[in-house]
Amino acid sequence: MDSSRRPNSGPNAASPMGPELARLIELLARLPGLGPRSARRAALHLAKRREALLAPLAEAMALAAEKIRPCSICGHIDTAEICSICADPQRDDGALCVVEDSADLWAIERMGAFQGRYHVLGGCLSALDGVGPEELRIPQLLARAAEAKPREVVLALNATVDGRATAHYLAEAFADLGIRTSVLAQGVPMGGELEHLDEGTIAAAFMARRGL
């Protein structure tokens, strides 16, 4: 597999694998967390388990490629025109949670304590990267909220500069609509000791304190 070990290696040496396998490795190497080396290992693993793994995986991927689409209401990645959360009649229409990405939605769903609806922005505002409100699903969010009038919008965005600026932006837009917003608390981590926290974190925790 390692072409440098072949006596005839060099730019003109024959490829050690057919184009199909080379293409598979090239595509696998583009996945997050995989590089050329781990892509070669994964491809070899798949090749050795052709019936048990490679064929079912190819089938699953073909089906997913055909079915996957962003939900037309919330933007979450799913396999139907309307995602399973938006289609669920048991969900609370009065609470709307705004996240940057589908991965954040999954993280909150793993917690299992939120029963409302979601809206996936597809990123956060960044002037430096050329991402404005129109590049995100912000117009859809505001239109949706103006119609559904939820009791509360939870802005569950990342605590980065861009995430926080996006939260400020949305909080103001919702204030104009007369809709209450909240952001996730920041402060003392679970199991954290106050003595070892910086003043900024302690100040944030103090401001977000609540009755027991």
């Binding site: 002037a127 500069v161 600026a165 939260a167 400020h168 103001e172």
Partner: peptide
């Protein structure tokens, strides 16, 4: 966008 500027000034 004035609202966006306001959000960044807040940060």
């Amino acid at each position: 966008d004035s609202r966006w500027l306001g959000a960044l000034e807040e940060e």
